[in-house]
């Protein structure tokens, strides 16, 4: 699975890194918090995309699918809490230094997002289509509140 995920340039980078630092390169990459949280963000983004398709009327509402997506998001958020050790940033990272200037506020925003994901999972479990839009927007709003303050714009 590891090799399948790697693109050619990434593989070359890993190879060069491997030559430079020896045989520990692959495991070092796995424990890099920047890479790990970017993967978590991508996983969340994928679920959010599926849920957004429902709110936009592009796919039909399905309680179990919503519950599963929301649970996956909640789980990724829980993991992400430990992926912001102090000073873990780089020129390419979109994490802003404010994360470590006001860590309590940052974690409170993480709590809000987890709570919103749990609420959305309930909506899915109850098959409550009428409550879906608001619950989904609540989760998106929690993502926004954190990203407004703690994430740099994408370079594009």
């Amino acid at each position: 699975m590891f090799s399948k995920r790697l693109t050619v340039p990434a593989a070359l980078c890993a190879l060069i890194l491997g030559l430079a630092v020896g045989s520990h390169a692959p495991s070092a990459q796995d424990t890099d918090p920047i890479k790990a949280r970017e993967d978590a963000m991508k996983a969340i983004g994928k679920q959010m995309g599926a849920l957004a398709a429902i709110v936009k009327g592009e796919s039909a509402f399905s309680g179990p699918a919503v519950e599963q997506a929301a649970n996956e998001i909640g789980m990724q958020l829980k993991t992400a809490r430990d992926l912001f050790p102090e000073g873990s940033t780089s020129p390419d990272s979109r994490a802003k230094p404010e994360i470590w200037e006001t860590p309590d506020d940052f974690m409170a925003k993480m709590d809000d997002a987890e709570a919103a994901a749990a609420k959305l999972a309930d909506v899915g479990a109850n098959g409550d289509e009428g409550a879906f839009r608001q619950a989904f927007m609540g989760l998106g709003g929690a993502c926004k509140a954190c990203h407004e303050k703690y994430r740099k714009p994408e370079d594009s």
Binding site: G45, M48, K56, M137, G140, C143, K144, E148, R151, E154
Partner: peptide
Amino acid sequence: QYGELFGYDGLSSGGMGA
């Protein structure tokens, strides 16, 4: 219209959220 409330995560940072 909806920004990240609809999961569009490119419209929150850098002041665009407001």
